[in-house]
């Protein structure tokens, strides 16, 4: 079952296509990374999904409800905005109490304490106006999680956090994996690689790629091998002669080759090393990083 389905979703601003026929299918129980450069349409997608902006064309279904016809699904969605702003006069506990009140949460006091504990704000008694950006981000997560939603929509949840804060937030999001579906927009690729099951890459409002990270890596795998030997020049001559690689790239004391048959190459390299009396220092099959794929996809669009 899909939690989010978008069908030819479009959003135009004064003739500019912010979303262009977006077709997305996000299954239940996964962490979906929504990637794209600044201005790609990530936040616009989220605003349309949350009924904060009206689509120009197409529609979306969230938890089975058509967003053009119903707003009931919003009760089952938790949302963290990219720049979390709250009522500065409240304390965290008071703010969550207000949210619990308007969303009719059962047993609110217990739920508020649990959520504050989860985000590490249980002992915080000062007003929100005095909070740092990181604390506001954590409070943002708390208010998103308070109603125990089925779907979490997080807009750049780690963009303003320090490495420690980022790790904590990512661990927290990852821990929700079995119980919730997370739609997570970001441009920090390492975060996506760390916790996401599937990703979508968006550019200029168009979805360029959508699949599991595993499949994407397979698809963009280049059969590249990194080798380090004691006599690089001699080794280079030999491999060009016997392996006929598609490309050869020398990086400091190592060489990266791209070949057609990786199994054959892996058998041949040790033979060459032994025959030529070389010392093999490193042999590694290079997997493409998400960054490489992202750059390739977005630059080729």
């Amino acid at each position: 079952m899909s939690i989010i389905t978008t069908e030819r979703l479009c959003k135009y601003f004064k003739g500019k296509k912010a979303l262009d026929n977006l077709n997305l299918e996000i299954p239940k129980g996964i962490i979906f990374g929504y990637l794209g450069p600044n201005g790609a349409g990530k936040t616009t997608t989220i605003r349309v999904l949350l009924n904060l902006a009206k689509p120009t064309g197409g529609t979306a279904y969230i938890l089975g409800e058509d967003i053009r016809k119903s707003r009931n699904y919003l009760r089952k969605v938790g949302f963290l905005p990219d720049v979390p702003n709250f009522y500065n006069f409240f304390t965290a506990r008071e703010f969550l109490s207000f949210i619990a009140d308007i969303t009719d949460i059962e047993n609110p006091k217990k739920r508020i304490e649990e959520t504050l504990e989860l985000v590490g704000l249980r002992n915080e008694k000062s007003r929100i106006g005095t909070y740092s950006r990181g604390m506001k981000q954590r409070l943002g997560l708390a208010q998103a999680l308070l109603s125990d939603p089925e779907l979490l929509i997080l807009d750049e949840p780690t963009s303003s956090l320090d490495p420690q804060g980022r790790k904590e937030v990512l661990d927290l999001i990852y821990s929700l994996k079995s119980t919730k579906t997370v739609f997570f927009s970001t441009h920090i690729l390492s975060d996506v690689e760390r916790i996401c099951d599937r990703i979508g890459i968006l550019k200029e409002g168009r979805l360029l790629l959508e699949d599991s990270i595993e499949n994407i890596k397979k698809r963009y795998w280049k059969r590249r091998i990194l080798i380090e030997v004691d006599d690089l020049e001699k080794f280079l001559e030999r491999i060009k002669e016997s392996l006929k690689p598609n490309s050869v790239e020398v990086k400091n004391s190592s060489v990266v080759i791209e070949v057609l048959d990786i199994q054959y190459t892996l058998k041949e390299i040790p033979k060459i090393v032994v025959q030529d009396g070389l010392l093999l220092e490193k042999l590694e099959i290079l997997e493409p990083s998400l960054e490489d794929i992202f750059l390739e996809v977005t630059s080729g669009a």
């Binding site: 605003r47 949350l50 009924n51 904060l52 707003r71 009931n72 919003l74 009760r75 969605v77 949302f79 905005p81 720049v83 979390p84 702003n85 709250f86 009522y87 949210i99 308007i102 969303t103 208010q143 109603s147």
Partner: peptide, 14 residues
């Protein structure tokens, strides 16, 4: 302006 309206409306408040 402070985006608190959007946050509250996104919770299903009419």
């Amino acid at each position: 302006n402070r985006k608190t309206a959007g946050l509250i409306v996104s919770k299903g408040v009419d």
